Amino acid sequence: MGETSSSEQWLSFIIADECYVHDVTSIKSIVLYEEPQEVPGATEGMLGILNVRGEPVSIFSGRRLLGIPDVQPSEQWRIILFDYPDGCFGLIVDSVDVLVNFEAEDIDRNTQQTDSDLIQGTMHFDERLMIVLDCGKACVRWLKEF
């Protein structure tokens, strides 16, 4: 993987056959999928609340946040738990892939075709196109609206 001291670590995961990456610094843990408890009046994309190690965590659907149709849960589904100063939340993904190392300066931010805070750009790594996400900005804003 060509790890160097100046590289940043990113977690790659799959949603609807597309590869996404997120900086690991805000990732608290990864847990097996459990169906969250529905919350009336929740913001779009938020599926509900899940009790994780005695702590209530708001759970978002990666598919819904990206405008991808829902499918039935599978055994490969995981919930990535994020810990930000403004809030903690979980993101449901179809599967978790690998840790990759690259520098944030290598992200192609010109490919961003949306006004969303979620998609930051793309990155080519090991002959794969990876979509770079920043879940913190978008999800923490949605948590505050809720």
Rank of each mutant, 00 (worst) to 15 (best):
E38C: 00
E38I: 09
V39C: 06
P40T: 07
G41C: 09
G41V: 12
A42Y: 07
T43V: 14
T43L: 02
E44Y: 14
E44G: 02
E44F: 06
M46P: 01
G48S: 13
G48L: 10
I49S: 11
I49A: 09
L50G: 02
L50V: 01
N51S: 12
N51H: 09
V52E: 04
R53L: 06
G54H: 06
G54P: 04
G54T: 08
E55P: 00
P56F: 11
P56E: 04
V57Y: 05
S58D: 11
I59K: 07
I59H: 12
F60N: 13
F60P: 08
S61R: 08
S61C: 14
S61A: 10
G62H: 01
R63I: 05
R64W: 07
R64P: 09
L65A: 02
L66A: 09
G67C: 11
I68M: 04
I68F: 05
P69D: 14
P69E: 15
P69R: 10
D70H: 02
D70C: 01
V71G: 06
V71A: 10
V71S: 06
Q72F: 01
Q72E: 02
P73K: 09
P73Q: 08
S74N: 03
E75I: 08
Q76T: 15
W77C: 13
W77T: 01
W77E: 12
W77Y: 15
W77L: 06
R78G: 10
R78Y: 12
I79R: 05
I79T: 09
I79P: 04
I80Q: 11
L81C: 10
L81E: 02
L81R: 12
L81N: 08
D83W: 09
Y84N: 07
D86S: 07
G87K: 02
G87L: 05
C88Y: 02
F89E: 10
F89Y: 14
G90M: 05
G90T: 13
I92G: 03
I92H: 09
I92D: 03
V93I: 06
V93L: 13
V93S: 14
D94E: 11
D94P: 03
D94S: 10
D94G: 00
S95P: 00
V96D: 12
V96C: 08
D97Q: 15
D97E: 14
L99P: 04
L99K: 12
L99Y: 15
V100Y: 09
V100L: 11
F102R: 08
E103N: 10
E103R: 07
D106R: 07
D106E: 15
I107N: 04
I107T: 06
I107A: 04
D108H: 05
D108F: 06
R109Q: 10
T111P: 02
Q112G: 02
D115W: 08
D117T: 00
L118I: 04
L118C: 05
L118P: 02
Q120R: 11
Q120G: 04
Q120F: 00
Q120Y: 03
G121Q: 04
G121A: 07
G121L: 05
T122V: 12
T122K: 07
M123G: 05
F125H: 14
D126K: 14
D126W: 05
D126E: 15
L129M: 15
M130H: 14
M130S: 08
I131S: 02
V132E: 01
V132R: 03
D134C: 00
D134E: 08
